[in-house]
């Protein structure tokens, strides 16, 4: 008797779960499971969007991308360089600024607001704002460099040889959010620890190295993963900087831009783009895995 009452209650719970969470299960099937399967199927075909004849081509798309497509290689390498270099820049600057902002000096609130300013420039405007700043003819940066006696200032985003570097420099202005994440972590550290270190005669650097870094290492890990994935997926900046096509001469062509051009510009080669998207996904998976493995060496386990 009691048993069946329990069962009835359970079933009611199931029903409530479906009433509330059913929408998520439906959405997940429509917007995640279906696209994954469909993309996988497309990747084995030569489908373009308006052409009704679709042929099964096996692994040809994958093989072509890996062995024969110079733009695929170039965009992948540029994406990796960009993700790594801008990741390091953002990580170092945001950590440094967070440490600075955590010091107990006057007017710190004003500095915090100022450091947040680059963040409020909408990302679709970032390109235009920094292009203006870095423009070799009309920009402020080269003007300043000339004051400091630089004879031959770089052409920045105009020249293929320096365009990617320019993009990396610009993206390192995006420290605002990560800085706040670090700041929150720093403020959670017990100040008594530093006082003790000071009494023991530890230098600023040593207390940073042996107190701060271990204590914020979980945050560090979280941020490294975020930054790596952000860098690989960078779209807006590269889209604006390269006029949507990796200008000048493919030097700012990051992988998401190349995929966008392949899939969504004429002639809409969905099949090939799908194969590239899968290769990209596998690479992200691999890198995240590497990050997780590496984290064993620098994340302290008993941080509370």
């Amino acid at each position: 008797m009691k048993h069946s009452k329990f069962r009835k209650m359970f079933r009611q719970e199931y029903r409530f779960f479906l009433i509330f969470s059913g929408i998520a299960l439906l959405g997940f099937s429509l917007f995640y499971i279906y696209p994954i399967i469909r993309t996988l199927m497309l990747s084995f075909t030569n489908k373009t969007i308006f052409d009704p004849t679709v042929e099964y081509v096996g692994l040809e798309n994958y093989i072509y991308a890996l062995t024969n497509d110079p733009l695929f290689h170039q965009s992948m390498i540029q994406s990796l360089i960009f993700a790594f270099a801008s990741g390091v820049m953002v990580l170092v600057t945001s950590l440094l600024l967070a440490v600075l902002l955590n010091s107990k000096v006057k007017f710190i609130g004003i500095f915090r607001t100022i450091y947040f300013i680059p963040f409020i420039i909408p990302s679709f405007a970032v390109g235009a704002v920094y292009k203006n700043l870095f423009n070799p003819n009309t920009g402020l940066i080269n003007q300043i460099l000339e004051w400091f006696g630089v004879v031959d200032p770089p052409l920045w985003y105009i020249a293929p040889s320096s365009a990617l570097i320019t993009m990396i420099v610009i993206s390192s202005f995006g420290f605002g959010v990560k800085m706040l994440v670090f700041l929150a972590a720093l403020q959670g550290i017990d100040p008594a620890l530093y006082e003790v270190a000071q009494m023991e005669g530890a230098s600023k650097w040593r207390s940073f190295r042996f107190i701060t870094l271990p204590l914020i290492s979980p945050m560090l890990f979280f941020n490294i993963i975020l930054i790596t994935i952000d860098g690989l997926k960078a779209f807006s900046l590269a889209f604006v900087m390269g006029n949507g096509q990796g200008w000048p001469s493919n030097s700012t062509l990051l992988f998401p831009i190349y995929m966008f051009m392949t899939a969504f510009n004429m002639p809409f080669r969905l099949g090939y783009a799908a194969a590239m998207a899968w290769l990209f996904f596998l690479m992200i998976l691999g890198l995240t895995g590497v990050n997780f493995l590496a984290s064993r060496f620098y994340v302290e386990k008993d941080v509370t």
């Binding site: 917007f31 993309t39 899939a263 996904f281």
Partner: peptide
């Protein structure tokens, strides 16, 4: 959440 939007976007666009 790890799956890149690029991968999911193609069939949705289609």
């Amino acid at each position: 959440m790890m799956i890149p939007g690029e991968l999911l976007g193609i069939p949705i666009f289609e």
